[in-house]
Nucleic acid binder design. Structure first.
Length: 185
DNA sequence: GCAGAGATCAGCT
DNA sequence: GCTGATCTCTGCC
């Protein structure tokens, strides 16, 4: 399966969010491969998006959002959860990222079951903090290059026919933007 | 099946 | 000091 090139991420954040649906997120741990199909994403932009971490400027936490595209932005929140984003933006913006909200488990489902401490498949990776736990994604993957073979990267995947757009979840500002995208598999 | 509490870090309208 | 791009467990309010 072909790895998505850096140019894929060098487009408008919203386009990239839609195009990431159906792609495959791959996590390598030693010689083990954990993977899943991306089924839900959210776009977070910059100054026109009050819900974005980048709105308000660069901080220690979000600085990769201002850097090179195709990089993983992992952040820690609510005192106990990690979430993954892919840095993506067009040249018009200084910052932007796509939050990966849900996956459909593909390889090493057994490992995910162990990591998540549940055997309900549908509950394994159906939330942003759940999929990071299932794939053991932590601060160590902060800044990982998603456009080349590393411990964490994204490849081509399924063909997608229907994408639904919704309001983003769990935010207070910018709820009028429908930048949450989903597919049914 | 749903509401509420708790976990406890980083950043600050 | 409070609030959040969250999840899990509890108890039936």
């Amino acid at each position: 399966m072909k790895i998505l090139p850096r140019s894929f991420y060098s487009r408008d954040t919203i386009k990239v969010a839609k195009d990431l649906l159906g792609k495959t997120l791959i996590r390598k741990i030693g010689n083990k491969t954990i993977s899943g199909i991306i089924t839900e994403t959210e776009a977070y932009r910059y100054k026109d998006d009050p819900a974005s971490h980048a709105y308000g400027g660069m901080t220690e936490r979000n600085k990769v959002m201002f850097g090179q595209v195709g990089i993983a932005y992992v952040y820690f929140t609510y005192g106990m959860h990690y979430c993954v984003n892919a840095v993506a933006k067009s040249d018009q913006y200084d910052a932007g990222a796509v939050l990966i909200r849900a996956l459909k488990p593909k390889e090493s489902v057994k490992t995910m079951i162990k990591n998540r401490n549940t055997n309900v498949i549908s509950n394994l990776t159906n939330g942003p903090a759940k999929l990071t736990q299932a794939m053991t994604i932590t601060k160590k993957q902060y800044g990982e290059d998603l456009s080349k073979k590393s411990n964490l990267y994204i490849t081509e995947g399924l063909k997608v026919n229907k994408i639904t757009a919704n309001q983003r979840i769990g935010i207070k500002n910018g709820v009028n933007k429908r930048w949450n995208f989903k597919i049914e598999i």
